[in-house]
Design a protein around this nucleic acid. Sequence first.
DNA 1: CTGTTAGCGCTTTCAA
DNA 2: TTGAAAGCGCTAACAG
Lengths: 332, 332
Amino acid sequence: MIESRKRLGQPTIADVAELAGVSRAIASRALSSEPRPVSADKRERVLQAAQELGYKPNLLARSLTTKTVNLVAVVVNHIHDLSDLDLFDLLISEIQSIGKQVIFVRVGSSERIEEFLRSGIAYHVDAALVFSDFANAATVRKMFRNDSVLMLNGMRDGGAPAIIPDELTGIAEAVSDAARKGVRTATLITGRAASPVEQARIGHYKSEMQRNAISLIAEMRGDYSYQSGRRVAASPEWQKSDAVFCTSDAMAMGVLDVHRSVFPENRPAEFRLYGFDDVTLAEYEAYPISSIGYDKTLYISEILRFLTTPELFQSGGMLVQVPTYFVLRSSS
Amino acid sequence: MIESRKRLGQPTIADVAELAGVSRAIASRALSSEPRPVSADKRERVLQAAQELGYKPNLLARSLTTKTVNLVAVVVNHIHDLSDLDLFDLLISEIQSIGKQVIFVRVGSSERIEEFLRSGIAYHVDAALVFSDFANAATVRKMFRNDSVLMLNGMRDGGAPAIIPDELTGIAEAVSDAARKGVRTATLITGRAASPVEQARIGHYKSEMQRNAISLIAEMRGDYSYQSGRRVAASPEWQKSDAVFCTSDAMAMGVLDVHRSVFPENRPAEFRLYGFDDVTLAEYEAYPISSIGYDKTLYISEILRFLTTPELFQSGGMLVQVPTYFVLRSSS
DNA sequence: CTGTTAGCGCTTTCAA
DNA sequence: TTGAAAGCGCTAACAG
């Protein structure tokens, strides 16, 4: 006979075993989600006892031996984009549907991020999904006990697997849409130049413009935000061109609003406007911005594939590309 | 001499103790963040050894004895509301700043939520912040091992502490703004009627209208979304009134867009329009919607107060109110 | 199939 | 102040 149940606190597996009249090991096996050898009658008795006692396993204790917590870290810089929300809502929901939970880690510009991570449960996650571009894959991998890290920040800097939208296809479609409509000169409004993703994006716009005989007469710097779009569009350096390409929808909205006050039509009269991201917002009538998007459902299903069968991605930092496409709206 | 360090895996506190030539207990104390009796020189040696080994405590193991994980659950229905956007980024950031991490639990309409919770680390959180209205306080409390639950869904259904915006003040200001401008008749566009929060909100609008001699000539049902605002505004039942009050900004945006196509001015010409939530978006030129908001920073600081000193809230389900205020924009 | 025995890594009595 | 030892609750290895 094992010790009698201590009255305080939740029942443990020892209590269940005692009530069922079996050893703790048997109780553990009977309660396991994996198939484990237990005779039918004992399993029945254990389940019955667990039920009776209202037994709930302590996952912290279990994790200690199994080395797995069914926890996924989502590492972000910040979430202030609407497109972020659409994405994260679905992502969380999908991750939960495979029985894992999501811990959000917002790294902002913090320098102490590594220390912060180490001192929290997030350090023990089974996998990390990195949307933030604060560090490269190698660094990020060192930040988690587990080296199962998926880069989703557009970077592809080495050993870690990554899923990135193939931006070239969408950009090519957008630029050729402009060319087809007679656009000969264009302005490019960019975001944070430091980002390698932005560098590549800019490169694609330039090469596609060249291919389509569109000359880039001005390149202006924003920071992806609505306000920066307004600022750029209202600045004295602003010059007329046939088309304005922005590397974010928010900047395009800013540009649109500045020019809307001059041209009361719901779109700029003097140029064709293109955004990037295809945020939900563009569905709103006031911002009918032609944009470049990708299939979020597909993107997320690839992420889930990584979480459920990481082996598939481990072959030398596999890269999965998700196609982008052009979405035509009245701004262009 | 304790067993020599096993080569595999991370160094444990035993390794540190061994290297420092002290017992595990001493190492534990020296490394503790709490003040614990350790002689100065041993503490020094332990810290030195930990440093040398690159020792990182295993928080899962620690939690097993301390019963605390520095983890906060944020329970939501979904996160794609415009108003969510403004809140969650700041909330996560603030929670992290006090050394806790955030686990997001999206309950959607799932029935198996309790089971899901029990089988995850989230069950062991130190506190739960409930934005979702899927259940009452008592039920929610049973879903976490810890009963430190803060209701943020506007409900105030019992023992649990809650922080809710005091909507009456803002609504009173909005309605009186309308009255002052000569509004005599009004339409009210509402969201999900099932929600008790919405019920209260509607009640406030009605009583304030009465007080201000504004007659409510139509009450129409939306679902808080932009699309539902459009649908309502375009429906055959729509009738003219001096003012339109919506219980969400998104619906007001929908209403505005439907009427914008008739009146190209940036605001409806035939009535004054009022929203609710004061989403960031309303700062954009295309949607200059007068709205009702509250100080998110204040709201979040109250939440943080709960997390750091829950005792303050435990006196019989304390209710903290955060004042709302009216924000005047050109739509009214 | 079953039970015993060791742990997982850490903290905390409890004597010394 | 210190260290031995006893757990926290669970799972896994190993005999039977």
